[in-house]
């Protein structure tokens, strides 16, 4: 899919995703080695966006499995369409049982869920397994077969193997430790907060209306906030929100009043707001 790491950066940038060298290298390797990519990092640094961008670059269909507590086989893998099977049985009254049986367990009655969808068919696909850490431990076991061999076993149909391997991205917020077995099968990528220069480019790309000097100041303030010991550090998504807010307010430069009034866009806890205001020498809120 990609010829070099620079190629990855360039093509991701075309879709509006500016990748750090670490991200580009790992995506390149995931493609080259054919391994799933496990992406961890704080909320709002673009983990899910990465999968979308890769799908766009590869002109592939994005198949998404959103994990949550209680997601199970029938939501992740496949399910038989019982209602339709019942209809089929009652419609074919005069048939022998053998005929009916082979018929109702055919593909027509199979409801494919994301994991099965991703490995069937010949068109290129990107499989995004979002917030893997929210799923129960049992689901991880389910993923192991899919991710290491790219095959799914349906007892009535046999084993379905992928003719074309999807590009797999798993994301996690590390709210639960994923099992070692799952980690072993994946390339690991930790997306942290970007460095100043990259973040400036991101802000410029997403909020083109903001002038150069203000962009620089915005990124510096966010950098200073990240160096503080806060409960929830502002992420790239918050930086962009803040830049948009400033643009909407028509603020030409940063000053105390503007920062104080808009700090809530960046920080989501009252403790943090107070602490940051004190450290930045803002007047009491």
């Amino acid at each position: 899919m990609f010829t070099s790491v620079d190629d990855v950066s360039a093509r991701l940038a075309e879709t509006g995703y500016l990748a750090s060298p670490a991200v580009a290298t790992t995506v390149f390797l995931a493609d080259r080695l054919g391994k799933p990519l496990l992406v961890e990092g704080p909320a709002g640094v673009g983990k899910t966006e990465l999968a979308k961008a890769v799908a766009e670059v590869a002109e592939a269909r994005l198949v998404r499995l959103q994990c949550y507590e209680g997601v199970d086989e029938s939501r992740a893998l496949y399910e038989w369409n019982h209602a339709k099977q019942l209809l089929r049985i009652s419609a074919g009254r005069d048939e022998t049982w053998d005929e009916t049986r082979t018929d109702i367990f055919s593909e027509e009655f199979l409801l494919t869920r994301p994991l099965l969808t991703a490995i069937r068919g010949d068109d290129p696909k990107v499989l995004l397994i979002d917030e893997t850490d929210k799923a129960d431990v049992e689901v991880e076991g389910l993923l192991l077969e899919v991710l290491s061999d790219f095959q799914v076993t349906v007892p009535e149909l046999g084993t379905i193997s992928a003719t074309r391997r999807p590009f797999v991205v798993l994301t996690s917020n590390a709210s639960r430790e994923l099992s070692e077995a799952l980690r072993r099968r994946c390339l690991f990528l930790h997306i942290g907060f970007p460095d100043e220069e990259l973040e400036r480019r991101i802000v410029r790309l997403k909020v083109p209306g903001l002038d150069e000097a203000l962009t620089r100041s915005v990124v510096r303030v966010v950098g200073a906030l990240r160096a503080m010991d806060l409960r929830k550090l502002p992420s790239v998504a918050e930086t962009i929100d803040w830049a948009r807010t400033l643009l909407a307010l028509g603020a030409g430069t940063l000053d105390e009043t503007v920062v104080r009034d808009t700090l809530g866009v960046l920080l989501k806890h009252q403790d943090d707001v107070l602490k940051a205001a004190a450290k930045l020498d803002l007047d009491a809120l």
């Binding site: 060298p21 290298t25 961890e40 990528l189």
Partner: peptide
């Protein structure tokens, strides 16, 4: 080793990220 092969040894930072991606499992 495959990552080294794919990335080459020319760029040290690429090599660093490549090895980190293949060898590490946690931040």
């Amino acid at each position: 080793a495959q990552a080294v092969e794919a990335l080459g040894l020319a760029d040290r930072e690429l090599l660093r990220e490549g090895l980190a991606a293949t060898l590490l499992h946690g931040p």
